[in-house]
Design a protein around this nucleic acid. Structure first.
Lengths: 331, 331
DNA sequence: TTGTACGCGTTATCAA
DNA sequence: TTGATAACGCGTACAA
């Protein structure tokens, strides 16, 4: 491995000078700069990020925490998009990232988790879809031990920003659209996410507002973002309702398939805009989010925090639409 | 940040002694060991992996390279399973992993790539579905610059192992089963993967063997593992054939949907066993692989290489089956 | 069994 | 504008 010493020797200068050239310090003459650059070229030298990390006390390693606690298969799609966006930004900012799944932390206390992350020299986090069940992670954020950006779980403090769409309005819009499109709309079944979750409540409030405005009988059931549970709920309640509104696409798909097995038709709408919907060929309304883009914005926000910015909430756009098979496969 | 020096001071010993305790050296008296352990506890000390990495010359950082070059959406599922398996093993072995997507390397020469990886202090790689188009990565492996394990791309040398199922036999079995199950089987369309790829050729050879044994007219087209291309191929050729055999589930799904749009029926079989198949509700034969498990075995193999083992090829099991919706959503 | 001293590759602080 | 030297936190010969 060719090091900065080798470069210094080859260029006939001190290694501190090489360092200055590499880091674009002004106090270097063009002549020495040239010598150094040539030596770097000839030796094929590349800086050792580990040594840089050790040397710079404030070096930042970013921990990405992806929630795969709900072990639905198709959370995969969302998680992957998040990662792709984050990795791209990491390269752009020259930041080192480490990926974790929440399941890895299940048996750790908040303290243990903190120690574990710090031992990895991680000082900032991007956390996707943090659920209230992950108490250890929540504590970390409240204690402000790390610079953090939360994606889709609103929580802000000095060192914490959050990024999400406006879940209230989005749920309101997609539900209203679905209801308006149909003639029978007296009895509505809402399959919510996880009981007590912030997002779940936001979306639920939207439905309640709609109920007041339009006036319909509302049944609320919690599907925990789980396709199978949504399916069971449909089997139990769908006979007595006109429309099914789901807090996620996955639950919506579970609902549609269950309905088709029961051989009855009820309009269904979802939430997320995952490509999987295109494959079910059941054209329903949903809220489309650009997960990759969202992840990138979260990274930008983290960068701002690291540069001294204050924690804040960022709202990003969404779109009420249908996911079509032909859009999904186009290449 | 509490360091090894703080622990040493608190325990009243030299930092080298602390180091020995931490690394379970035998040459430490129980008394000092206890003192040190107590100091570690009280201070909440955790080793700095970065410093360890710099100090140990042979420290291993593993680069995971996932191919998302074919930008099909549902490569996501496979990629995620690979990552989950790898991360789990990484934690088990206490190895640091860094994730890359092949697309990040597109504009790099083999030399640049090598330098980039080394600057990240990466000395070993697990590469998933390496395609022959990624020449820069191929060169790296041939030059044996890194300990590597290839998943699903057979290539072995002193520092390189590979892990995959027996693609020849698997393709043979699933194709034969599909053909046996049907009455009309005189004209068969095989939608292969990428022209010239090792796996593609393996699978193609299986089909040719079958052709000799059974005797049918064979049309071979290359779909590049792309759903859309498979679709186009179907539109063009399916009228004159009896059965469609695809080298991937994704292409099989594209084929099934295209056939249904044409309003004709042809038996189709796939390859991979992705859960997406369950959602299309088109029960077809496929070859199911456990991607997570495969990734774990690849990691085990890498560990063996690092411990001085020789490069070799590992064959892992598969299963010819159908992917059913109820299996996919069961929780 | 314990401690001293040095090296890992880099940045930062001074003094020259 | 340059260069010597001390950190950064840890592992490890080698000496005590």
């Amino acid at each position: 491995m060719v090091s900065i010493n080798d470069v210094a020797r080859k260029a006939g200068v001190a290694k501190s000078t090489v360092s200055k050239v590499l880091n674009n310090y002004q106090s270097v003459s063009d002549k020495t700069r040239l010598k150094v650059e040539r030596a770097v070229q000839e030796l094929g030298y590349v800086p050792n990020v580990v040594a840089i990390s050790l040397s710079k006390k404030e070096f930042n390693r970013v921990g990405l925490i992806v929630d795969i606690h709900h072990n639905n298969q198709f959370i995969d799609e969302i998680g992957m998009k998040y990662l792709i966006g984050a990795f791209e930004k990491a390269k752009e900012y020259h930041l080192d990232v480490v990926t974790f799944f929440t399941s890895q932390f299940n048996d750790m206390s908040s303290k243990q988790l903190s120690a574990y992350l710090k031992s990895q020299r991680i000082n900032c986090l991007i956390i996707y879809n943090l659920s209230i069940e992950n108490k250890n992670i929540y504590k970390l954020i409240e204690k402000q031990e790390f610079y953090s950006v939360l994606v889709d779980s609103l929580l802000v403090n000095e060192k914490t920003s959050s990024v999400s769409i406006d879940h209230f309005t989005a749920q309101y819009e997609v539900a209203k659209k679905t209801i308006d499109e149909n003639d029978f709309k007296k009895r509505i079944l809402y399959i919510a996410g996880g009981r007590g979750g912030y997002i779940t409540n936001q979306r639920l409030n939207a439905i309640k507002k709609l109920q007041k405005e339009i006036g319909f009988n509302l049944i609320v059931k919690y599907g925990d973002f789980n396709e199978y549970k949504a399916r069971q709920i449909i089997f139990e309640y769908s006979r007595d309702i006109d429309i099914v509104i789901c807090a996620s696409d996955l639950m919506a798909i579970g609902a549609v398939f269950a309905l088709s097995e029961m051989d009855i038709f009820r309009p269904v709408c979802g939430f997320d805009g995952i490509t999987l919907m295109g494959y079910t060929k059941s054209a329903m309304n949903t809220v489309e989010q650009n997960f990759c883009q969202k992840s990138k914005q979260a990274f930008d926000e983290l960068k701002k925090l690291l540069d001294g910015g204050e924690g804040r909430h960022i709202e990003i756009p969404y779109e009420v639409c249908r996911v079509d098979y032909m859009d999904v496969i186009q290449k």
